[in-house]
């Protein structure tokens, strides 16, 4: 087990290092997030954004930043032609969890960047219970990464990659989006943990099931 853990961290470090070396993708995606938020800010300019609209808009930002940011994980390997080397050097479980870890970090970064920008540029929205809000966003980031990592591995092996990724991801992400929007609304309105419990349980269970199933299925996508 420890060798898988070591290899997982190695894959994670490799991805992180190759990203930080150029920062080309990261910058492009952060600019994309900024564009999304600006689009929303201009669209709602002069309007009163109530909690219901705000929670929906936050999820729009999170969905679109995930769709641009997370598709790269395996496509980059195919484009650089390094997937064969990765296949030789690391067991599939390590590759999967390494990429998953990298995607989790990436989603957290993008989501918190997007949300910060949202609160700066779309005024008049206050968070009623910040603890719950942070928990929901963190959970949403984890679950988003869990639901899209396997799909990014699938689309890396196909043509028309860009268009397929959101098409394949959206229906898988929807069981997260439905309770997620409700939770965000509750958090903005200042609800306590007890009111959010049902939806939180739903999200956590979906997260666990998705991660397990992705891990079980990853071998079939990764191996030739």
């Amino acid at each position: 087990m420890s060798i898988i853990l070591r290899r997982t961290l190695a894959v994670f470090r490799k991805d992180l290092r190759s990203e930080l070396r150029t920062r080309y993708t990261l910058n492009a995606i952060l600019l994309f997030v900024l564009t999304t938020v600006m689009m929303i800010a201009f669209a709602t300019r002069g309007e009163i954004v109530n909690d219901g609209v705000a929670s929906g808009l936050l999820w729009v930002i999170m969905f679109f930043s995930a769709m641009t940011g997370l598709a790269r994980a395996f496509v980059a390997e195919e484009e650089r032609g390094t997937s064969l080397l990765l296949r030789l050097s690391s067991p599939p479980a390590a590759v999967f969890f390494g990429k998953l870890l990298y995607n989790v970090l990436m989603t957290l970064l993008l989501n918190f960047a997007g949300i910060t920008l949202f609160f700066i540029f779309v005024g008049g929205v206050a968070v009623g219970s910040p603890g719950l809000f942070l928990l929901v966003i963190a959970l949403a980031s984890l679950a988003t990464a869990a639901s899209t990592t396997l799909i990014s591995a699938i689309i890396a092996r196909s043509r028309s990659r860009g268009a397929l990724f959101p098409v394949l991801s959206f229906p898988i992400m929807l069981p997260l989006v439905l309770p997620g929007v409700e939770l965000t609304l509750l958090a903005l309105g200042g609800a306590d943990m007890a009111q959010a419990q049902n939806n939180l349980q739903l999200m956590v269970s979906y997260l666990v099931v998705l991660t397990t199933v992705s891990w079980l299925l990853f071998d079939f996508v990764w191996k030739e």
Partner: peptide, 18 residues
Amino acid sequence: ARLSAVYSIFGFVSAIFL
């Protein structure tokens, strides 16, 4: 066959929740 099988299993998990 392989990739669509993987996606249909993955999608079915989502379907159970839905």
